[in-house]
Amino acid sequence: MSVETLLIEMLGSVPHWIAVLILGALPVSELRGAIPVAMGIYGMGPFEAFFFSVLGNLLPVIPLLLFLEPVSNYLRRYRIFDTFFIWLFSRTRQNNTESFEKYGLLALAIFVAIPLPATGAWSGCAAAFVFGVKFKHSFPAIAAGVMMAGILVTVLTVTGIGLVDLVFGV
């Protein structure tokens, strides 16, 4: 059973719009999975699918941006988490410092806007945290990236070019 099928079955008893909000908020699907499911399985129109998916994708952004640092600082007291954060920070900085220094917040928005696995709002929040971008700058950039991704995924879904295969490996 695929992740997509499992999630849809688990959300079967909730109203479709809430299911789409939840799918949009989850790091495994985000809106690149929520929009095709909303339109293809729940029969929502493009605007409704876009709205609930984008809203769902933005729901975790504020808590993530506000609480990643305090949670990270707390967890770093334990060696296993400290090792993980050292690895995460060095890997993220090694792979993205040049782009971020060159393009700044535009790089963050574009990174979030690319509707592929390992990109999106959750990863954008992690990148903003790693690079020390303040909330007042990172939230608008991430929100812009989420909206761009939402437009792209909606257009691809309407035209029949689905991203569910990329996201869930179906």
Rank of each mutant, 00 (worst) to 15 (best):
3 V>C: 04
4 E>L: 14
5 T>H: 13
5 T>P: 05
8 I>G: 05
9 E>W: 08
9 E>R: 14
12 G>E: 01
13 S>L: 13
17 W>A: 09
19 A>L: 08
20 V>K: 01
20 V>D: 01
22 I>G: 04
24 G>Y: 01
26 L>G: 07
27 P>R: 11
29 S>T: 04
29 S>V: 00
30 E>I: 04
33 G>S: 06
34 A>R: 05
36 P>Q: 09
37 V>Y: 00
37 V>M: 06
39 M>C: 03
41 I>F: 09
41 I>P: 09
41 I>K: 08
45 G>N: 14
46 P>T: 13
47 F>G: 12
49 A>H: 03
50 F>G: 06
52 F>E: 01
53 S>F: 01
53 S>P: 01
54 V>E: 01
58 L>T: 00
59 L>D: 03
62 I>S: 02
68 L>A: 09
69 E>N: 14
72 S>Q: 13
73 N>E: 14
73 N>I: 11
74 Y>S: 07
74 Y>F: 15
76 R>C: 08
76 R>N: 09
79 R>K: 14
81 F>V: 02
83 T>Y: 15
84 F>Q: 06
84 F>I: 08
87 W>Y: 15
87 W>K: 13
88 L>S: 12
88 L>R: 12
91 R>P: 12
92 T>L: 12
94 Q>E: 15
94 Q>G: 15
99 S>Q: 13
100 F>H: 06
101 E>D: 12
104 G>V: 08
105 L>I: 10
106 L>K: 06
107 A>I: 06
109 A>S: 09
110 I>S: 03
111 F>I: 00
111 F>L: 00
112 V>L: 04
114 I>A: 00
115 P>K: 07
115 P>T: 11
116 L>E: 03
117 P>G: 02
118 A>I: 15
120 G>D: 02
122 W>M: 03
124 G>L: 03
127 A>C: 12
128 A>G: 12
131 F>S: 09
132 G>N: 06
133 V>Q: 10
133 V>F: 04
135 F>S: 06
135 F>Q: 12
136 K>S: 14
136 K>N: 09
140 P>W: 04
142 I>G: 07
142 I>L: 06
147 M>C: 11
150 G>K: 03
151 I>C: 13
154 T>A: 07
155 V>I: 14
157 T>L: 01
158 V>H: 05
159 T>R: 10
159 T>Q: 11
161 I>Y: 15
162 G>I: 14
163 L>W: 07
166 L>W: 13
167 V>D: 05
167 V>Q: 08
168 F>V: 05
168 F>N: 00
170 V>Q: 12
170 V>K: 10
